[in-house]
Amino acid sequence: MEDTKKRNFSIFSRCYKDVLVGAVLLLIFVLIIIGAQSTQLLVLATITAKFWPTVIGIIGCVLSVVLIAQGFISGRKLALLENSESAVSEKGEKLFEGGNRRTILTFLLVALYIISITLLGWIPSTLVYLFLQISLLTEKAKRKPLRIAIITVIFTAIVYVLFRYAFMLMLPPGTIWQIWR
């Protein structure tokens, strides 16, 4: 029973993907229109700051409805095809497995890298981030930690010297060290 429900939802989400995406976008564009109304306005002006986002929101709503309609028409035909080809419908990936898990981990790594750059500074953050990110993207069979560590250290050193001394660009020093001093 549970499996049939899951399978039906899986078929629905794949066949009617554009319908679901269109619905989410419709909601976003409605929120844009609502958000635009709360913009502070210049009393004397006839065309105010809320005008442009409101126009974007209205056109977006219309296009989202068209996308939903298009998705519904093509999805209905696709659903018929999927039901007749049950073998095909088994394909799918769970949210926290395989490629999805690596994508989520990459997102978290980049977010942590940005936080770490501002806190700890560019050099230590880059050393850790590069090592972890390269390890994550490399297949287990080809993963050689020592080689990755050497690449990480050499690349970080080259970029630091190039940006800091050749291009004379600022690299984040890290707030924690400034407080320490």
């Binding site: 940005i114 560019w122 990110q133 490399t138 690349f155 970029v159």
Partner: peptide, 13 residues
């Protein structure tokens, strides 16, 4: 797997 993280680091800098 090596190139893209390096590019990302330069993009962030």
């Amino acid at each position: 797997s090596v190139l893209l993280p390096m590019v990302l680091v330069m993009c962030l800098v």
